[in-house]
Design a protein around this nucleic acid. Structure first.
Lengths: 150, 150
DNA sequence: TATTGTTATACTCTATAACTATA
DNA sequence: TATAGTTATAGAGTATAACAATA
């Protein structure tokens, strides 16, 4: 029998914070190079969208411009990211990852994925598949609805 | 074909922060009574474990004692929770939810579950089932491994 | 001496409001 | 006047280190 959305919502509300806490703890402990989750996510985005203006990064992260500016301050202080003035619109600032940032991101991603997958290693295959399906469904559901806000 | 734990880890690492951000946004916007996610979770725990000492709450939340003490400060300031000296061990402080806290928790839980389930309403039944299965698997995987730390 | 909790301090995350520079 | 970004300010969340009270 299929569960109702309400029953599932209860589970989601219980487990997502647990999972998030686990991910943060892993990033802190296992050499994820002292990157917070938002720092990690913004580096990922900046790497794959090199030259994006700050506003686009903010939009992707779901943060306000001031929050994003401050986040980037921290990354720039550590030379992981570079601000450059846009040549076409001098109000804009474009962002690019530095070689150091790129390398650190690789290490962090590897370390974090490794400890997450270690935690899931004992799960039976059908549960792994359920997790993949669930992640894809949640991503769709929560990204779509987020647009409401804009 | 079953996915590998590593591939699944990548999805988890991508989607959990998105889901968490969504939950936070819903709690902020849709009347979840100005409770942060940690406040919400600690109220839930204190309600179902009335009289627990602060240390147990900290352990359940996966926080340090000082962080938890400060979190409880905020809840007590709003009269949602009460500290009482333990009668058996005077070093200890036991926690209990107040009637106000209980009522607010009900409202917050209802509102948040409602907006989460609204976001998932359009998902087909087999995806809902996958999410339930996944939440149960992740809870097991991430709670078990967390014990490493202790 | 070990345990429970609090206080002091510091950093990140996040927001809103006010501001600057450019379009 | 509208837009892109920064600065100022503030509050929550989190940690570690130092401390107090009790066992």
């Amino acid at each position: 029998m299929a569960p109702t959305a309400t029953a599932t919502a209860k589970d989601v509300l219980e487990v997502i914070p647990i999972a998030m806490r686990f991910i943060k703890a892993q990033m802190r402990e296992h050499g994820a190079a002292d990157l917070s989750v938002p720092q990690f996510r913004s580096l990922l985005f900046i790497r794959s969208h090199s030259g994006s203006p700050l506003g686009e990064v903010a939009e992707h992260l779901g943060l306000t411009a001031p929050s994003t500016s401050k986040l980037v301050d921290g990354l720039e202080r550590r030379a992981l990211v570079e601000r450059r003035d846009s040549s076409t619109d001098r109000r804009k600032v474009t962002l690019a990852i530095t070689p150091e940032g790129d390398e650190l991101l690789d290490r962090a991603a590897r370390a974090t994925r490794k400890s997450i997958s270690a935690a899931m290693a004992a799960l039976p295959p059908q549960e792994l598949r359920a997790i993949e399906l669930a992640m894809s469904a949640l991503k769709r559901a929560f990204s779509a609805t987020k647009r409401d806000k804009a």
